[in-house]
Nucleic acid binder design. Structure first.
Length: 270
DNA sequence: ACATGAGCCTGTGGGC
DNA sequence: TGCCCACAGGCTCATG
């Protein structure tokens, strides 16, 4: 559920509210999330006196930089940050970061699909296309690596090795806006449609960021607010409802695709 | 080399 | 009202 807009919102919120502060300690409330915590390494990164230098997004990952090193936080499906309540540890609160100024930041993740991974600062970053950058997308989509690919356009959009940050919801919304069927193979898509996709993706994601992200059920921003973008979904989750494109009489279909659901209008997406 | 599918998890909601 | 089960989907690894 956290896709690029949700992760972006957390990165901004942490940057504004916590960067510049000194840590006192990191506290673990269990031994693992998706993987066991690298406790000793993490304790060094968030050791007493270390300073929170920076927080930014890389694809769907959050990168936390302190004077002690780098940590990659993956939110998985249900990961989130919020100001911790000093008097109690919440049910799904797995990590707490304490600060010298008395602030306290909790990491929650009910389904525990997320993970914290220590990253060496000199580790080369994977080169991925930024979906907020229209020129990046245009370049990617004209490459033979993409437009001669035999997989579906939806699977391609969600491939994190190619584009960093698009998941099921925004892939389907972008395909709807561009009038492209999610089932279509990459090698069957016209130049005009590629162009439309590269235009729609950044504008869609920026709009979602402005609205605080999508919320299927449990997404909350740092201050506990639900995002409102889910109200603006045009196809996602709208099985059997009318297509919202003007002059289109189609009805939204749901089909299984690569182990998850795809929604699309069979009339205006082709 | 690539593509596909299982598995990890729990909260939610529809159906009976 | 309450129980059951399908489903949600990011990411990695095993298999075809």
């Amino acid at each position: 559920m956290p896709e690029l807009p949700e992760v972006q919102n957390f990165a901004q919120a942490l940057q504004i509210n916590y960067v510049g502060q000194s840590f006192t300690e990191i506290v673990f409330h269990r031994e693992n999330l998706r993987y066991p915590f690298e406790k000793e390494k993490l304790k060094k990164i968030f050791a007493n006196g270390n300073v929170f230098l920076k927080c930014f997004r890389e694809g769907k990952q959050l990168i936390l930089e302190t004077t002690g090193g780098f940590v990659q936080v993956s939110l998985g499906m249900t990961g989130s940050f919020k100001e911790a309540n000093k008097n109690e540890v919440e049910k799904h609160q797995h990590v707490t970061l304490n600060f010298k100024n008395g602030q306290s930041l909790a990491f929650l993740d009910p389904r525990r699909f997320g993970f914290w991974k220590v990253r060496d600062s000199d580790e080369p970053k994977k080169i991925i296309c930024d979906p907020l950058n229209q020129e990046d997308l245009e370049q990617l989509f004209v490459s033979t690596q993409i437009n001669q690919k035999s997989c579906s356009v939806k699977d391609m959009l969600m491939d994190q090795n190619l584009i960093g940050g698009i998941g099921n919801i925004y892939a389907l919304e972008a395909l709807f806006l561009a009038g492209v069927s999610p089932l279509k193979n990459c090698d069957q898509i016209s130049k005009i449609k590629w162009r439309k996709l590269s235009e729609q993706i950044p504008s869609l994601l920026n709009k979602a960021i402005e609205h605080g992200g999508s919320s299927i059920s449990t997404y909350r921003s740092l201050n506990g607010e639900k995002g409102s973008f889910q109200k603006l979904h045009l196809v996602y989750g709208r099985e059997n409802e009318k297509c919202l494109k003007k002059k289109c009489n189609g009805v939204i279909l749901r089909v299984p695709q690569s182990g998850r659901s795809s929604w699309y209008c069979p009339l205006c997406q082709n």
